[in-house]
């Protein structure tokens, strides 16, 4: 819809090239040429590089990893075919998989939900006429730009279990606690601390994307709604939400995928402990592979993770596509 509107004012694109301006003056002046004339050369130019990446840099390594899950990799990563032996071994103790699986669900579910809520709330707040909102916006995005390894180390330092730790120190200062709490040493708290770190790092990206989506909603819609007597809640559900929904699903899916395979945050903060309360599938794969050297189980579990992610992503994208069509 705004595509056509954009046509009326190609001005922003202006300084670009004179041709651009000239070209926009021209549309329709001559009958359109080609169509159906996608030459092989064009294909090579436009899709070639991506295909190189997809096939050479993704399909091959992923295929390799998937194949490895059916190979005798326990034997110093031998690639001899071994059937489903790795999977059998993995499922010998299914109980070992349940806790990490549930932990993963909690970690992904809660951190994505929290990042979406916080990001959406922030976007709504920033999408107003508040003075200094540009400053707010810049500052709120800072956590996004620092590397994950550093994020995790920083939170470990803050969540130190002694009163010398910033968080405990702060709580003690305001009188909420007398004795320090071992945040990372308690199965009740540790899962929430890793979620906190993940949300802190992740919400700005959600916010910036949703802010962009909000700003793209034409004001006319709100004006018209206001004329019709729609209240703020009604405006939110009838205009704002449908406007941001596709992006909401998109960033939710992306954040979910990143959380699903997140390893560094958890490894640095808790190493999966205490008592397995923060062990997720990604850290388990890592542990099986590098600490126990059980390559077969590790690659089999990783392949299952891949499958799981694939299913979940397809599901959410369906949702998104349907949303687009609405």
């Amino acid at each position: 819809m705004s595509g056509t509107r954009r046509m009326e004012r190609p001005a922003p694109e202006r300084p670009a090239t004179p041709t651009a301006a000239g070209a926009t003056g021209a549309p329709g002046s001559r009958p359109r040429p080609r169509r159906r004339t996608v030459s092989a050369g064009d294909r090579a130019i436009f899709f070639g590089p991506l295909m190189v990446v997809l096939v050479g840099m993704l399909a091959f390594p992923i295929g390799f990893a998937l194949y490895a899950s059916f190979a005798d990799v326990d034997n110093l990563f031998s690639l001899e075919f071994a059937g489903a032996a790795n999977y059998q071994e993995l499922f010998e103790r299914p109980a070992d998989l349940v806790t990490p699986f549930l932990n993963t669900l909690r970690f992904v579910g809660v951190s994505v939900a929290a990042a979406l809520v916080l990001g959406f709330g922030g976007a709504l707040l920033l999408n107003t006429t508040l003075r200094g909102r540009r400053w707010f916006r810049s500052a709120l995005l800072f956590p996004w730009v620092i590397p994950t390894v550093l994020v995790a180390l920083l939170w470990r330092w803050i969540m130190d279990s002694n009163l010398g730790g910033a968080f405990n120190g702060l709580l003690a200062e305001v009188g909420i606690i007398d004795d320090p709490v071992s945040w990372l040493g308690s199965p009740d708290w540790a899962p929430w601390v890793i979620i906190l770190a993940q949300v802190w790092h992740g919400f700005p990206f959600v916010m910036i994307m949703l802010l962009a989506a909000l700003q793209a909603i034409p004001d006319e819609l709100y004006e018209a709604a206001a004329v019709d007597g729609a209240g703020p809640v009604r405006q939110l559900t009838a205009i704002t939400w449908p406007g941001v929904r596709p992006i909401f699903v998109l960033v939710g899916t992306l954040e979910g995928l990143y959380a699903f395979r997140e390893f560094a945050t958890i490894d640095v903060l808790t190493k999966g402990g205490p008592a397995g309360s923060t062990e997720v599938l990604a850290t388990q794969v890592y542990r099986l592979f590098f600490e126990y050297h059980q390559f077969g189980k590790a690659v089999a579990l990783a392949a299952l993770m891949f499958l799981l992610a694939l299913l979940a992503t397809t599901f959410f994208l369906r949702l998104s596509i349907r949303g687009d069509e609405d």
Partner: peptide, 24 residues
């Protein structure tokens, strides 16, 4: 199909890609 496959890279645990890459 192409678009869905674009998301593949985001799905597999990085750990598992390290070895194939190393070999290549």
């Amino acid at each position: 199909v192409l678009m869905i496959s674009l998301l593949f890279a985001q799905m597999i645990p990085t750990v598992l890609l390290v070895i194939p890459y190393f070999l290549i």
